[in-house]
Write a protein that binds this DNA or RNA. Structure first.
Lengths: 264, 264
DNA sequence: CTGTTTTGTCCCATTATATGGGATATTCAA
DNA sequence: TTGAATATCCCATATAATGGGACAAAACAG
């Protein structure tokens, strides 16, 4: 159930989106710059930019165009699309209290992981802005926890599309090794990241499910190795996450009983 | 410099965006639902949805389509598009410390106000999710502070486009009254909202400018009337905001000197 | 302030592509 | 498993997207 799709695409839509993405990539730009970068005539880019501007998807400051705020409006919507997501966001602060580290909730999207919610600890030794960022599934705890629950065939598709690029010395770059580790994750019930995406960064993650049993995403806790000792990494933090997950899933049950839902 | 524009639009792009907006409006939907709602043939909607899905702008769960996470990625980008925005976000927590209330940073977009950053006080008596939401300019402190700095002609254009809809008994619905109040705001240096958008909600706002003097947006502080006394409303909070703004603008000067910018 | 260059805006004939009807394949629920 | 609902696909037709180039406006240098 992934993308390969033979339905002919709407080329104008693709072009418009390309323009917006180019604006993002270069942090805004002039008509001519975009025209050159995408190798599309000035008049075409002009018409697309004006169309997007009128719709709120592009802003303009003099002759500099940039990504519009309508994206923020829609982006925020996606963070709370499901009622469970709001509950999960609230639970993040509990997880911060329990662990004292950076925590996040992420989902799988097009074979990569994107962070929907993030909460900093008081002592934010690293104040990364993860929300809205895409990460590889194979080198993040959040990602491995999620794909561990997917059938091998689907994991293979992700590998085929995105590869297993090496980011640090510890990154898993062999398919077999990845599949082995996913098996371990299934047994343990949580995933670990030992500096596979950033040297010296440790993370723990476990998945969250809807009341109907559908995989929603994963909760993760991250911090530098010198702040997260071995016992914390292998015992305390995993336990804290699983406890929060279990409370969450129980709450989902209550939510759904109230409204009488039943899906999937 | 507002939208009316005679350049012919890219209709396919508009259609795609309409589809996404419809998904947002109804919190996801099936192909058939969207087709009915927009009165466009199934095959056309199908092609648009698949195009958007492949590009990451639509997600799909079975036969239910919804707004995709690519919007979150681009939306987060807009929140930090300018280096000043990051500084402003950081300053929000200082403003929370100083006032103990809900604070926000908002900008003008297409004649409405959109909140880019928001910080809750500890005692979050109301935990509204403002970020990414659009508000009227005429009934919010954040909005009035901003349009007070725009030429009358531009304010008139906003009124012509969005009107002065009455939301509470105190909402300003007369053009003259609005223009008068904007004059007062210019004299005072800050704007007030006395229950004009929500009964019993008080807000104070002041604008922030880049080092080049460009209007960036406004900082605002909000809370229920029974938590914000008269003296706080008219003296303490305005002072706190103006102090933070002044620190911010000084910092912008230092930032720009470092990189040697000079625009506008 | 003026001449010069750059960049955005607009128009039009040509070409490409978006469209909807309907036939088929899939999915979903009972 | 079966039937109903829904998504997917194909194709002829109509429509809309495109780029070249003329024009206007703004930015820049002297």
């Amino acid at each position: 159930m992934t993308h390969p799709n033979k339905t002919p695409s709407v080329k104008s839509t693709i072009k418009s989106l390309q323009i917006v993405e180019e604006l993002q990539k270069r942090n805004g730009g002039t008509l001519k710059e975009i025209s050159n970068a995408l190798d599309i005539s000035k008049s075409t880019i002009h018409r697309h930019l004006i169309t997007l501007e009128n719709a709120g998807y592009v802003t303009r400051d003099g002759n500099t165009f940039d990504v519009g705020y309508r994206f923020l409006n829609l982006g925020q919507y996606t963070r709370f699309r499901r009622p469970e997501f709001g509950e999960i966001k609230s639970a993040l602060s509990d997880l911060v209290s329990a662990t004292g580290h950076e925590v996040a909730f992420s989902v799988l999207d097009h074979g990569k992981i994107i962070c929907l919610h993030q909460e900093h600890s008081q002592a934010d030794y690293f104040d990364q802005r993860s929300t809205g960022n895409y990460f590889y599934a194979h080198n993040s705890a959040a990602g491995k926890a999620i794909i561990a629950e997917k059938p091998d065939r689907e994991v293979q598709e992700i590998i085929d599309e995105h590869g297993l690029p090496q980011v640090t010395a510890k990154t898993i770059t062999e398919e077999n090794e990845l599949f082995d580790q996913l098996e371990t994750i299934r047994e343990q019930g949580y995933a670990l990241n030992r500096g596979e995406s950033t040297e010296g960064l440790r993370s723990v993650a476990a998945t969250v499910h809807s009341d109907a049993g559908q995989l929603l995403g994963s909760l993760s806790v991250s911090g530098p190795k010198y702040y997260i000792g071995d016992k914390e990494f292998h015992e305390t933090i995993p336990m804290s996450i699983l406890e929060i997950v279990s409370k969450l899933e129980q709450k989902f049950g209550e939510m759904d009983n109230r409204s009488g839902k039943s899906v999937n």
